[in-house]
Amino acid sequence: MANVLAILEQRDGALRKGAPELLAAARQLAEAAGGAVDAIVFAAGEVAGLDGLGAAGADRVRTVTGDAFAQYNPDGIVATVATIAGEYRAIVTSATATGKDLAPRIAARIGAPCGMDVTQVEIAGDAVRVTRPVYAGKAIQVLDLAGTPVIAVRPSAYAATSAGKAGAVEALAPASFTQRLTVTGVAEPEGEAVDVAEARVVISGGRGLGDPKHFALLEELAAAFGGEAAVGASRAVVDAGWIGHGHQVGQTGKTVAPELYFAVGISGAIQHLAGMRTAKTIVAINRDKDAPIFKVADYGIVGDLFEVVPALTEAVRKAKG
């Protein structure tokens, strides 16, 4: 009962990014508890990349295969995980849309507490102790969870490690379940490969853009980063209908923690700061040198974004070769 189960996500036979980071978190917890890490993957068939999971920290990889798992199938996953939950000290998922959907279902099924959006997980006596931002990052809560807690860990909170574990793959039969919800499919918009919540670089725009069409400037800058950058936005411009709400960063939007965050023409309302303050490096570009955003930014440029952003795009393009 000292082992940790990490539920990995896949889509169309490819592991979703964030698996190594989740395994790193599971590894640390398992070592503190004196146990091993099991990864589990639900899929319709073969999943590429399972052989690399040992290196990332999985002692064992359990695969559950069947047509029922061609799409995300929470009912099937919950039923199967519930049958093996007794083997584990804790169960972890990524704090993604899918992982956060899944964690509380499993917790409720097995009668365990659930820790959501966790940035640090450790053993504290009989409990599993989790650290998590609350009030949109305006405060940090430490919570002790009894039983076999189900914990959704933020993808950016742990760095992948090279653990060199066995990673032996074993098949597990799915448990029988009642299909209550049927996922009919995933639509991926063209040309918008990176999600704000997942991107290594986020470039957010606010009212200072002046007009919705000027988001094109930010898209060009994102493109210069070559597919690892996404465009975000402040609440004001989302509410004004300049860009879809999926781009909103902040207390009522997405909380992001990219390595590099650009706030362009964003004054820095407290709701926005809450959503991006854990970014590793923050750059602010604003014509108002007194804007609050400069108080949280690591680097600031005071100036007209219509001059600065194109120059920056050009410079990044060159730097990236």
Partner: peptide, 8 residues
């Protein structure tokens, strides 16, 4: 810009 923060 003026008035961007919420009025309370």
């Amino acid at each position: 810009m003026a008035g961007s923060a919420e009025y309370t």
